[in-house]
């Protein structure tokens, strides 16, 4: 077991109220395993990722539950230990590389500074290493790109720099939060291929976050589906995509316009009706669920495992 998240709950302060963002997230990640976290906007994917690395703001935030890396409780580490963990053990890439890169330094400087900080390298050693990593992530002409500023690179190149930076310290886990959402499909395919290659080569574990199940399906083995701050379904990629259990997952899969299913006749897309509403009691999906029952309004469904390895939080499977 490399990473274990146990009943993670997060609240944010909104004026005088505490609003729940995560309500009991639990999952495990093994060595060289890759899992995907999918869910609609606001379902808590990024908060989960940030909570693992203890990157959530301390002010106006409350957190309960545990995050274990190997045998260490991440929330019990000293700030120095935490520094070593971030980057060297667990690295993260963010959705928008432009905000994560510093505009006033060249991309080469940013990666080599990071290497120097962690490995005590000389300036020229760090530069040499950086150029090698740039080459590994498929940046053409890495020597000259070393001196490029972030804004001088295309979106795809910037994301490669982010990946280079994340991989520079050979982390055991890479958390990628929507790494391709801002990119065109052609560039997205290149980045996915690159991540897959690196993962295989370095035996790295991957947590891949996206709102797009088709993208996640290209790269992960296991999927967690989030809805309103909770995991409502989890299982192998095949289980979740081919025989989804939760009505939300079923609706989500239906409303994706799939390229294999283009018909001669134009038609409307199948929809999942309504939008998310905040609910304190009962099932959070109640308002939109086509299969709702009276119990769903009263009690929150427990997270059960009706099929081996395939878990779901829904009263239909009780």
């Amino acid at each position: 077991m490399l990473l274990r998240v146990e009943n993670l709950r997060v609240w944010f302060q909104n004026d005088q109220n505490w609003v729940k963002a995560l309500s009991g997230i639990s999952f495990e990640l093994n060595q060289s395993e890759s899992i995907g976290i999918v869910g609609e906007s606001g379902s808590g994917k990024s908060v989960t990722a940030l909570a693992i690395l203890r990157l959530l703001p301390e002010k106006g935030m409350r957190i309960k539950g545990k995050v274990w890396f190997e045998d260490k409780d991440i929330y019990a580490l000293s700030s120095q230990e935490l520094c070593r963990l971030r980057g060297k053990k667990i690295a993260m890439i963010f959705q928008d590389p432009l905000t994560a890169l510093n505009p006033v330094f060249t991309v080469g400087e940013q990666v080599s500074e990071c290497l120097r900080y962690h490995y005590n390298l000389s300036k020229s050693q760090a530069k040499e290493q950086t150029i090698k990593i740039f080459q590994d992530v498929g940046i053409p002409a890495p020597e000259s790109r070393f001196f490029a500023y972030p804004h001088q690179l295309s979106g795809g190149m910037r994301q490669r720099v982010m990946i280079a930076m994340a991989l520079a310290l050979r982390p055991k886990i890479l958390i990628a939060d929507e790494p391709t959402t801002a990119l065109d499909v052609t560039i997205q395919a290149q980045i996915l291929k690159l991540l897959q290659e690196i993962k295989d080569r370095q035996k790295m574990s991957l947590v891949f976050i996206s709102h797009d199940l088709t993208v996640v399906a290209q790269i992960v083995e296991r999927v967690l589906v989030m809805y309103a701050g909770a995991i409502i379904e989890s299982g192998s990629l095949k289980q979740v995509c081919e025989s989804p259990l939760h009505p939300y997952t079923q609706g989500l899969l239906n409303s994706i316009p799939r390229i294999e299913e283009i018909s001669q006749e134009k038609r409307r897309l199948p929809v999942l009706c309504g939008e998310r509403q905040e609910r304190e009691i009962g099932c959070p999906f109640y308002g939109r669920c086509p299969k709702k029952m009276s119990i769903c309004l009263k009690e929150r469904p427990p997270f059960k495992e009706p099929i081996s390895g395939h878990k779901v939080a829904c009263w239909l499977y009780d």
Partner: peptide
């Protein structure tokens, strides 16, 4: 070819 879909790995463009 670059459109991701289920059951197929991204072809290397």
């Amino acid at each position: 070819k670059a459109i991701p879909s289920f059951g197929k790995k991204p072809l290397s463009p």
